[in-house]
Amino acid sequence: MFTGLIEEQGRVIRVDITDPGCRRLRIQTSTLPHLALGASVAVNGVCQTVIASGPDWFAVDTLEQSLGKTNLGLLGIGDAVNLERAMAGDSRFDGHIVQGHGECRVTITRWHQQGSNWYLGVRIPQEKLHLCIPEGSICLDGISLTISSIRGDEVVCNVIPHTREHTTLAHRRVGDQMNLETDIVGRYIARLAEVRGGLR
């Protein structure tokens, strides 16, 4: 489990096709400690397993499902990625519950500054819109954000300068694709309502 608080921006330094439907990403890290084999780390919000590591790098194998649903399949050498290690049991819980299960890619529709804050808009697929609520949580590229407004199929989040400067949002532009994970609590409630034919 993760919290959506990014620890570091890593950088892709090598991409290999190891098997059909599998890409091995080697990611450079400057602040994360030596990651143990088998450790879980969220890369742009997608939970990955460390399969090799060194003093300043680690490698993960990204499989076909994640390649098709997330932007990990679009990464190239030199690209920055958001990194977060799995939450420890005795850690403070400062973000929201993030599983690291990228549901789909969403497109940035707006990304601009107004005063000291930035506003990020993404277009949400119709089948995911009911899982988004104003003042609710949303995870984009592994970043825990709060929804400020919903306008049609566009979800808008207010982003403080610190978050922009310390995540890959500093490099994002309108038209870029980000990984979406909706709030797990909302997904459970929606599933319960579906199974029971509506909440009473």
Rank of each mutant, 00 (worst) to 15 (best):
L67V: 07
W57R: 00
A39H: 08
A59V: 00
D79V: 08
D61A: 11
S53Q: 15
W57V: 09
L72C: 02
L72T: 10
C47K: 06
I77R: 11
F58N: 02
D79R: 08
N44E: 14
I77Y: 13
C47A: 09
G45V: 09
V43R: 01
L74M: 15
V50Q: 05
A52F: 05
A80P: 14
L75K: 03
G73K: 11
I51K: 13
N71P: 12
T62S: 13
G73A: 08
V46E: 10
V43P: 06
L63F: 15
I77A: 03
T49V: 01
G76Y: 04
L72D: 11
V41Q: 02
V43K: 01
G68L: 14
G68F: 00
C47Y: 12
K69Q: 13
L63E: 14
A80K: 06
L67E: 08
K69I: 00
G38N: 11
P55C: 02
C47Q: 12
Q65K: 13
L67C: 05
Q48T: 11
A80L: 15
G73H: 08
D61G: 02
T62E: 06
L67M: 11
L74T: 13
N82T: 08
N71S: 11
V46T: 11
A52C: 08
A80I: 13
P55G: 05
S66A: 13
L72V: 00
A59C: 09
L75A: 07
V50N: 05
A80D: 12
G54V: 03
V50R: 01
G78L: 05
N82Q: 10
A42S: 08
L72K: 01
V81D: 10
E64D: 14
L67F: 13
L67K: 08
E64Q: 15
G45H: 05
V41H: 01
G68T: 09
Q65W: 07
G68R: 13
G38T: 04
G78T: 09
T70V: 03
G68K: 14
C47F: 00
A39F: 00
D61K: 05
T70Y: 03
G68P: 07
A52S: 14
L63G: 07
V50W: 04
S66N: 13
V46Q: 04
V46H: 08
W57L: 05
L74N: 14
P55W: 03
L72M: 10
S66Q: 08
I77K: 02
G38C: 12
V46P: 12
Q65P: 09
A80T: 02
G68D: 09
S66D: 04
N82A: 07
W57I: 07
V50P: 00
D61R: 03
T62V: 15
D56T: 14
F58K: 04
G38P: 06
V81M: 02
N44T: 01
V50M: 06
Q48K: 14
G54C: 01
F58M: 00
V50H: 06
G45R: 11
V41I: 15
L63N: 11
N44W: 04
D56Y: 09
N71V: 14
T62G: 02
V41M: 09
A80C: 14
Q65F: 09
G45D: 04
L67W: 03
S53V: 01
G38S: 12
V81C: 01
L72Y: 08
